[in-house]
Design a protein around this nucleic acid. Sequence first.
DNA 1: GCCGTCATGAGGCACGTACCTCAAATTTGA
DNA 2: TCAAATTTGAGGTACGTGCCTCATGACGGC
Lengths: 346, 346
Amino acid sequence: MNEITTPRRATVHDVARAAGVSLATVDRVLNNRPGVRPTTARKVADAVTSLGFQRDLSASLLARARDLQVRFLIPAGSNEFMDSLADAASRRIESALIERLQIAITRLPLLDARALVDSLDVLMPHQCDCAVIVGTEEPAVLASVEEATRRGVMVMTLVSDLPGSSRRHFIGIDNVAAGRTAASLMGRFCPQGGKIALVAGSMHLHDHHDRLEGFRAVAAEYPGLELLEPLEGHDEHQETQALVEQLLARHSDLGGIYNLGAGTTGLLAALRRTRRTGSLRVIAHELSDCSRAGLADGSIDVVLDQNPDGEIGAALAAVRTLALGAGTLENNEPIEIRIFLRDNLG
Amino acid sequence: MNEITTPRRATVHDVARAAGVSLATVDRVLNNRPGVRPTTARKVADAVTSLGFQRDLSASLLARARDLQVRFLIPAGSNEFMDSLADAASRRIESALIERLQIAITRLPLLDARALVDSLDVLMPHQCDCAVIVGTEEPAVLASVEEATRRGVMVMTLVSDLPGSSRRHFIGIDNVAAGRTAASLMGRFCPQGGKIALVAGSMHLHDHHDRLEGFRAVAAEYPGLELLEPLEGHDEHQETQALVEQLLARHSDLGGIYNLGAGTTGLLAALRRTRRTGSLRVIAHELSDCSRAGLADGSIDVVLDQNPDGEIGAALAAVRTLALGAGTLENNEPIEIRIFLRDNLG
DNA sequence: GCCGTCATGAGGCACGTACCTCAAATTTGA
DNA sequence: TCAAATTTGAGGTACGTGCCTCATGACGGC
């Protein structure tokens, strides 16, 4: 009958006593206020670590008498996934408020760096503690992120990272692993081998590129699989539908389709017309009304989902931690890829 | 450029003003203290709903000057999954402390109702706000849960539910859906059909029973699949290993194995000896060192996992919500089943 | 030795809620 | 109708931290 319990917590008073300084000095050190000699600051820091002091988040937020302000900058447009991200964020407005987090959401023109920069540049520390952005890797965006950080507005990246920038944190899935997983399933689905079609949005999108790379790497382990050249539907429903119809007409012996982009609506429309049940395995990305329907009626076998609710939740948790605590985030594991079949849709 | 922002929060002072009563009375109503006329209580309740008042958790916990005490009662023994549950709980001790949640863990003899009852009966409200138990459905356990609730100790069930009891919440996966998912994958893995073996711990375990039921229902949709009678390895490694070795010897044409129990170590040992790569698809439950290794070396194709970390996190969140707020938990969605292949292990 | 600058201490108020006491107002029962 | 019981109000202190002011001490250069 093993037994584990938790220790007691230290307060700022304990730290002051242990360091042999006053409360005011401890406060100055903890909140990087000026006017403390390095020697004294060190004494306080030592006391903090030796006591294992952790700031009480509740009391801290209470004392500030001010909520943490988080602003999401999310692309709009025909992209269903971005909609579900925004929906996930707005669903959490109420529950986040209980934890003293105020959420604001701005929808921006799709893939418009200028609009993103403009929205980011006007955010000031007194009205926004953290901006969470889905940004493209362009010089103007990077410069804007640096400037926001300099002003005192923390920036986090969502879905698509900006490595090398001063963004404090990235929230998103491992897209190479997603592609690998899709190939691993497809390989097992087609033990006799067969032709596999690849449908992407655009090879210029970093996440699509990663997925393709992962898929190709693992598909190579299944010698029976023959990968066709990837099609680019630019995440447009009609374009994707036309491409897939053409594809199905040309290859009567197709074994499977991996749709690594966002054009699932168009794909489904094409499949519904020329349905070849049984022989055709379909793997797509992102759970939506459309892909749910596809799973339910059997036209899609598997959906890989990057869990927008989980991403928003992770973002909010990171804001809480970073806005008050130390500089780094220990729990830096990426968002998990969710795998859905008809039978675990819930 | 759409725009969404959050409203402001009401405090107890606002409620008192709106209801036309004093702070003391509001306090009495909010914390069900005696000495309030029903008419007055109703006025306060109306003000609460009309203002959308929500108690400030931070301030509430701060004022109590006392952490929430949660005690996990988890079986010990050879069951790896229970170990990982306990590990997940102890990993959260530190981070939970920041949120004023004190975690205590008691490991109990496996499937010993007497030990569980004894541990539950000694928990008093002043030292334990909530007990989270993995309990079997036996009269003595049920009685003990009722008694704890009566004393003022909240009880939540984990992994295995006690429906009809006064437990405030259940945290676990939908095991029928897990079985269905396994069958759905197996059916796609074996497009030519084939013999499928089922390995369980015991049919008396509710979760194993549910998984089998789900698997059978969906497997029936794949006419080529021939299900063998389920074997019972009692979650013991050696017994399972012996059973599987015998099984493999008898059926040289076996197409797949679904291990819906906890004896994965034994299964793996048997597979490693008589390995038939390529033709044999294996689906197992619960991610562990052992099943990870199986995924990595290809002896297991898919692992369905009930995400112990997620379950512990959900339990803690539920405690926070229930211990302070209203009677019910809105966010009552079950834990998601995680699906792992070699390629999304992370 | 005087002034200016910097480092530190001492203390207080605030945040929103919990919980306590005591007095005043109201209702209840006989 | 009066006393007892119940309900309500008023106000305080506390929780741990943030942020503010003011006083004191230490140090430098002139």
